[in-house]
Nucleic acid binder design. Structure first.
Lengths: 335, 335
DNA sequence: ATGAAAGCGCTAACAA
DNA sequence: TTGTTAGCGCTTTCAT
């Protein structure tokens, strides 16, 4: 059923129907209620595309990972996407998903969606490094966009920013360990020594505790990598009393390796992970770790985007979502 | 830029541009290439909504979980959604995501999308139980829909079906255990004794091995639940030689509990999980488990939907995606 | 407060 | 082979 058929069936003009639907323009409350009631009764729903064509807005937002799904692990994704979708839904926007493996493909699709006006705005998940020129290009289409990344992005019109502040949790870990009296501290990194490592080392230094190079290892992704790193670290004549692993997966492997050489965690060795994956909640002992607040990130990104959508003029200030320490039972005061 | 402006700028009619874009209708290859080239040059992209309005098809598909996200765990979601999105992308369709918590809300949104023609079709993830009347209602809108569930759905026009055959993997586990000489076998269930349990028990019976009630426990979701169940099972004077846990999470807890009472896995007790979550690949020992093929499910669902989209006439036969056994190191021949 | 009518940008008959 | 034109279903002036 079209608005024409519907309007003539209930004996009003299409303009009146439209006014009743949107609640704007002059219309008496009585007619409005009548139209709304009969819409339900006759099951009339306006054609989405006709509305979009005439208003020029699609009421859709794209979510794109630019092929960098690894960086925000799978489990982060669901929480993030759900938070975004629900926040968008509340304001009548829909979420268009782009999960292409290849970032080039991903971008191609995104550009087409923007140029063809299929989406009004974009949420980009950028991981560690942000391609500023890409953002400038997107901005040149005058379509709002917000970037979730480890850094803030400023000074590009139409581009908002949500920064995942991993340094915060890392500093909290440093503080915790120093508070508990640890002085020989190890770090097991993922492929790259990143902002977490930097912040951790800096904070330790600030607290008067130097991170010795021999206790800093770059391991990899898997639990086996973590186990290997821990085993290697434990070959030193003077062992660390606490180890911070860049990911929970590494930490889990490290935990196993420590147990394998007869060490008790946390009695003989304190251990801290990062990410708060479910498994670290029920290993033995449950690991102290750092949590990334995905839902908050999603919400912040959505709010930023909605604000850009309403007034492209003022780019809202970057939002920060710090990671935070989750205390469990794998850290004790050093003997 | 609109098609009008573009067409007059390059000196042809809008019809010619449209023909060039879609490659149908009579048009010389020369003009076609020319138009395409100038499109790139001038950066003209047709307005999505105008196209949709006039063709009456939205080139969008909705993915909906009906608020039942628990059932397909988070990690399944990403693989599934990605497979679907990529398969859709290849045929020019976009994916509209619906992750609402509440199934009522979820349905409301879905109905609006369908009625307003915002989507051409739907992929529903239904988990264990399928609401047939709901499907009939959706079908009455004459919008294709495919259901991913544990059962097949047949006989509803416009409704396709992809069945996740968990019974297959369950039977493989039964066979494996019997092959390895196990006769006293335990089962740790999640909240409900489901198709996995049924198939497992049936297959055991078929192989001449009865599952004793005292070795069948209904535990819960968490690893702790699994640990508790295993501890209880091990209080029996005659212990099982092998245990099948309904989820890997339960199995991981059970593994810990077995170790805690001094049992070696698999030497003293064989253990099988279900779901193939990453963690079971790197625990000690790596667990034999059952894998659910999410990407295949997504692909099958998408193919089914696309076929329905092309010809609503013949509902394609239900597709089956069996779960399969993943052999690792937690099962040995019984002594 | 309500109605008439002019588009929104595109596709697809129909004409040429 | 190409152009002309009538819609697609809606919103929004501008009249009334």
């Amino acid at each position: 059923m079209t608005i024409n058929e519907f309007a003539s069936q209930i004996g009003v003009s299409t303009a009146t129907v439209s006014r009743a639907i949107h609640g704007r323009g002059r219309i008496s409350e009585k007619t409005r209620q009548m139209v709304l009631a009969r819409m339900k009764e006759l099951g009339f729903t306006p054609n989405f595309h006709a509305q979009r064509l005439v208003t020029g807005r699609s009421q859709m937002v794209a979510l794109d990972f630019l092929g960098e799904k690894q960086i925000l692990a799978d489990m982060f994704f669901v929480t993030l996407a759900q938070a975004i979708q629900q926040a968008l839904h509340a304001t009548g926007y829909g979420l268009l998903l782009n999960l292409m493996d290849d970032s080039t493909q991903s971008l191609l699709q995104l550009r087409r969606w923007i140029k063809s006006r299929a989406v009004d705005g974009t949420i980009l998940v950028a991981g560690a490094k942000v391609d500023r020129s890409l953002l400038c290009e997107l901005a040149s289409a005058r379509t709002p966009c917000v970037v979730i990344a480890q850094q803030t992005v400023k000074g590009i019109p139409f581009v908002g920013s949500v920064a995942l502040e991993l340094s915060h949790g890392a500093r909290q870990v440093a503080q915790l360990l120093v508070d508990k009296g640890h002085r020989r501290i190890g770090f097991i990194g993922a492929e790259v020594l990143d902002v977490v490592y930097d912040a951790f080392r800096e904070e330790l230094e600030r607290l008067g505790c130097l991170l010795s190079d021999q206790f800093v290892l770059t391991a990899g992704r898997t639990a086996q990598d973590g186990a290997r790193a821990m085993a290697q670290m434990l070959t030193h004549p003077v062992r660390p009393t606490a180890v911070f692993a860049r990911t929970d997966t590494l930490a889990l492997g490290a935990l196993q390796a420590a147990k394998d050489v007869g060490l008790k965690v946390p009695a003989d060795l304190s251990l801290v992970g990062h990410d708060d994956i479910p498994a670290v909640g029920w290993c033995d002992p449950p690991l102290t770790t750092v949590r990334v607040h995905c839902a908050e990130m999603g919400l912040a990104a959505t709010e930023t985007l909605l604000s850009l959508l309403q007034s492209n003029l003022l780019p809202p200030p970057p939002r920060h979502v710090p990671s935070t320490l989750v205390l469990r039972q794998s850290v004790v005061t050093v003997k």
